[in-house]
Computed example of a mutant assay.
Amino acid sequence: MSISATAETQAQAGRRPDTLKNGAIQILLLINAFIMVYPLVVMVLSSFKTNAEIFTSPFALPASFSLANVDKVLAETNFVRYLANSVGVTSAAVLLILVFSTMAAYAIARYEFRFSSLVLMFFLSGMTVPLKLAIIPLFIQLDTLHLIDTYAGLVLVYVAMGIPSAIFIMTGFLRSLPREMEESARIDGASEWKVMTAIMLPLARPALVIVAIQNAVPIWNDFFFPLILINSDDHKTLPQGLTVFMGEFTTNWGVLFTGLSLAALPITLLYLVLSRQFIAGITQGAVK
């Protein structure tokens, strides 16, 4: 047997375990994708069904793709109002989280000062204790500030929840960026604000997208804090507002599934639009 044939045989033998490993990984990913997507498919299909269809054939296709449940959602509830409230609260909270966490992370990552590590640990300590454990003193404090049943009180709570993890992600990403570009900009006479906004932030766009998605999804889906802090129907967000379909004795499941499907649509579209930047941020080590 020639040397080239022997080398080819060894290469094929080395590739065989890798092929089996990759195949097993692909199978596991497909199973995981099925487990994650199938409940969503059932939810969407159930939104076209009546209560009788849901109980008799919960996993079958609907008899007809009627929009009667959509009409009930829009006509019998303040769904549009709940949707606008969720969009406003989520957008305001994510925007404030991005602004404050970026400025704090930039100072910690790009400037050298004596207590930088201590300041970072102070922010990271906010990730160790869930804010829900402090709901009683938090409620008392917001009530003293007259922020109960207001958008501002809800947004401030979400900002306080999101800033620690956002600073952690942004600091790790900004520390990985080379210093040569910002030093060149300073030599050319650029101000510190210009260096941050025109040079560093465009490079940190994948990390900003990660922070935005990581905070937008739980804020959009949150039910606990609106339940505690919001009283009036006009200020309710979608998760809290959709509970009107759950009666004490009966529940219109078709209409409820329709509301849930419509509520999941905006955040799903947001992820699809930003998915490329999200994946880029992960592969570049933004969460090291």
Results as ranks from 00 to 15, higher is better:
Thr197Arg: 14
Leu118Lys: 02
Ala75Trp: 01
Val73Ser: 14
Ile267Tyr: 08
Ala92Tyr: 07
Ser57Pro: 01
Leu265Gly: 07
Asn51Thr: 05
Gly285Ser: 08
Asp233Lys: 13
Pro239Glu: 05
Ser176Lys: 07
Arg114His: 05
His146Leu: 07
Met43Asp: 08
Thr56Leu: 08
Ile136Cys: 08
Lys21Asp: 12
Ser261Glu: 14
Tyr38Ala: 14
Glu183Ala: 12
Arg205Ile: 15
Leu229Cys: 04
Leu270Ala: 15
Leu95Cys: 12
Trp193Asp: 03
Val73Trp: 13
Thr150Ala: 14
Ile230Glu: 10
Leu95Val: 12
Ala63Cys: 02
Gly285Lys: 02
Ala280Tyr: 03
Leu131Thr: 15
Ser165Pro: 00
Ile228Lys: 10
Asn252Asp: 15
Gly88Ile: 11
Ala68Thr: 12
Ser4Pro: 00
Leu83Gly: 11
Phe257Ser: 11
Ser64Tyr: 07
Met121Trp: 03
Ile54Tyr: 10
Val89Asn: 02
Ala264Arg: 01
Ala263Arg: 04
Ala280Gly: 08
Asn22Met: 12
Thr6Ala: 12
Val129Leu: 14
Thr102Gly: 10
Gln284Glu: 15
Ile169Tyr: 09
Ile187Arg: 01
Ala60Gln: 13
Ser191Tyr: 04
Phe79Trp: 12
Ala107Asn: 14
Ser46Phe: 00
Ile279Trp: 03
Gln214Lys: 04
Ile230Val: 15
Leu120Phe: 13
Phe55Lys: 09
Ala92Ile: 15
Leu238Met: 09
Phe113Asn: 03
Gly23Lys: 04
Leu40Gly: 12
Arg114Ile: 07
Phe34Tyr: 11
Asn85Asp: 07
Asn252Glu: 10
Leu174Pro: 00
Ala264Tyr: 05
Asn22Glu: 14
Val87Asn: 06
Val119Asn: 01
Val255Met: 12
Ser101Thr: 05
Tyr158His: 15
Ala92Asp: 11
Ile163Trp: 04
Gly254Cys: 07
Leu29Pro: 00
Ala7Pro: 00
Ile136Phe: 13
Ala264Pro: 03
Ala204Ile: 01
Pro226Glu: 09
Ile210Glu: 04
Ser4Thr: 07
Phe249Val: 12
Met246Gly: 03
Ile210Arg: 04
Pro178Asp: 10
Val129Lys: 02
Ser125Val: 11
Ala190Ile: 01
Leu61Gly: 09
Tyr106Ser: 05
Met200Pro: 00
Asn252Ala: 06
Arg110Tyr: 01
Phe48Leu: 06
Ala204Lys: 04
Val155Gln: 04
Asn215Glu: 05
Ser46Tyr: 02
Gly14Gln: 15
Asp143Cys: 01
Ala60Arg: 14
Gly285Pro: 00
Ile167Arg: 10
Pro226Ser: 10
Ser4Ala: 13
Leu203Phe: 04
Leu45Asp: 08
Leu30Lys: 05
Leu98Lys: 06
Val244Met: 09
Met103Gly: 02
Gly153Ser: 08
